[in-house]
Design a protein around this nucleic acid. Structure first.
Lengths: 168, 168
DNA sequence: CAAATTTCAGGCCAACTGAAATTT
DNA sequence: CAAATTTCAGTTGGCCTGAAATTT
């Protein structure tokens, strides 16, 4: 059936236990699954965007949550690089989801605001993210999902001071 | 203190709750933290490699775990693209950590084996991954870490048939 | 002939660095 | 003048496609 003996062994069909026993390794692998599902869900919504990507949704959520802000504040809050933010806002502005105008009080800054069209887009995307979340954690019970979420949040809060450790 | 009113609000210093409440989003963010710590730890070991990256360690673990294999089998097992595998093996071979010889029974294949130098390198890297794991999950107790690990593994097993759901 | 394996060329996204231009 | 903000040019790693060369 095969020229090499090791091909027939079941052992080579699963990951080495050395890697599987590390949570950080599992985490990296699961995040690629999560990203793929998220992008697929966002693309299924078919908005007026050239690319359906996570930073676009994050920026819309940020603006819908706390109102207009300058680019640097959005970038710092979402851990998106300021350089990359430019292209994301170009996309969102071109789609009519945000407006970018010079701040008259400090002309170095752009005041970025979400439009009503942008709010509608965000709500539709939000629903898609929920569906991706459900699909990803399908094997867990509701209780287990909540537990997992709290642990995740505590760990992330430890490494990122802008993540509040507890739910409000 | 600032030209824009929203800069002074605490609200903009934390992520939008819309994003924080999704485990898939938290997962993606935490994985970037995990990757950064892993790469820093691997680089700190300072082996004979041009780059200190995760796939290099994964390949060494795979070969140490189950013996020689052809490139395609390693790639499928580790979910590394066959195209990228070429460069990884070039690095490992040049460093003297693996050998690549034509399989005489099927000259299309390369039989890849780990060397004794490669085994030593893997053990040192393994220790570094452990340290990165400890640092990442520092805020959790031992019990919580084990719980988190089991949940992670169950979720990943649901999406990847080559992850055994239970520990042996 | 078709199929399998390795290799190479190249694209995409996310994360990042460095520097230019403008304004404070 | 220095510092802050936006913007652009370019790099890297991880993931991907397509195709060439060799062998079965």
């Amino acid at each position: 059936m095969s020229a090499t003996a090791q091909r027939s062994a079941d052992a080579v069909r699963v990951w080495p236990e050395d890697l599987l026993k590390r949570s950080n390794f599992l985490l990296c692998k699961l995040s690629t699954v999560a990203k793929r599902e998220l992008v697929e869900q966002l693309a299924a919504q078919d908005l007026e965007l050239p690319h359906h990507r996570l930073p676009h949704l994050a920026v819309l959520s940020c603006l819908a949550d706390s109102g207009p802000a300058c680019q640097k504040d959005i970038a710092e809050r979402l851990r998106i690089d300021g350089s990359d933010m430019v292209a994301v806002l170009d996309d969102l502005e071109h789609a009519g989801y945000v407006t970018r105008v010079r701040d008259p009080r400090d002309r170095r800054r752009h005041a970025v605001s979400i439009t009503s069209t942008g709010r509608r887009a965000r709500r539709r995307l939000d629903h898609r993210v929920d569906r991706a979340d459900d699909a990803l954690f399908a094997p867990l019970t509701t209780t287990e999902r909540e537990l997992f979420h709290r642990l995740l949040r505590r760990v992330l809060a430890h490494h990122d001071p802008r993540v509040p450790p507890e739910l409000p």
